[in-house]
């Protein structure tokens, strides 16, 4: 039943059983529509799509080239800036060293003056002190002599002797010199 209707349809369409590809009756139809299609596709591609894609690709290439050039520019600028920074740093360091040296020299000079002054003062004070000490020492020696004389007189008196002042003084002086 299905075969019959199928066959009837085929007969009506002017086809024979077999490969539809070899049915010459449909060739003119296929060829006509194919040519229409190809022409349409050709115009769509050559008028719209291909120029547009070519423009996009060219624009991208241009953008990339520009960006790379800009990046190289910026890199050069960064390097220049780094060099300038290094130079400024070196200059500043030299300046700082110079200032430090000057300051140190000035301080040293001040210090030298101060030290000299202090030394002089110290020397004066020391001399004064020495003098005072010598005075004190001299005073002390006299006092010692006095005490020793008294002590010796007392000791001699205690021992029952009677000592004259002159001999005791002579003995004490002799002792102290020794």
């Amino acid at each position: 039943m299905a075969d019959n209707t199928n066959a009837a349809a085929e007969v009506a369409a002017g086809t024979q059983a077999g490969m539809p590809q070899l049915n010459v009756g449909t060739f003119d139809n296929q060829i006509f529509w194919l040519l229409v299609t190809l022409v349409v596709i050709y115009f769509v591609l050559s008028r719209v799509a291909l120029p547009r894609i070519a423009a996009i690709l060219a624009e991208r290439q241009g953008t990339i080239t520009n960006d790379i050039a800009a990046a190289e520019d910026l890199k050069a600028k960064a390097e220049a800036a780094e060099a300038a920074y290094d130079k400024a740093l070196a200059d500043a360091r030299a300046e700082a060293q110079r200032i430090a040296g000057e300051t140190k020299a000035a301080i040293q000079a001040d210090l030298d003056v101060a030290i000299e002054k202090a030394d002089a003062e110290i020397a004066a004070k020391a001399a004064e002190s020495e003098k005072a000490i010598a005075d004190i020492r001299a005073g002390a020696q006299d006092a010692v002599k006095e005490v020793a004389k008294d002590a010796a007189k007392d000791i001699v008196a205690l021992m029952g002797g009677k000592a004259d002042a002159k001999s005791i003084t002579a003995a004490v002086t002799a002792r102290m010199k020794g």
């Binding site: 490969m19 539809p20 139809n29 296929q30």
Partner: peptide, 21 residues
């Protein structure tokens, strides 16, 4: 693979709108 008219009928003329079209 059969070429058939899209809007009824059995005849396939060169201008017929078919499934190929």
């Amino acid at each position: 693979f059969e070429v058939k008219p899209l809007f009824g009928g059995y005849d396939v003329h060169w201008y017929t709108i078919t499934n190929v079209t």
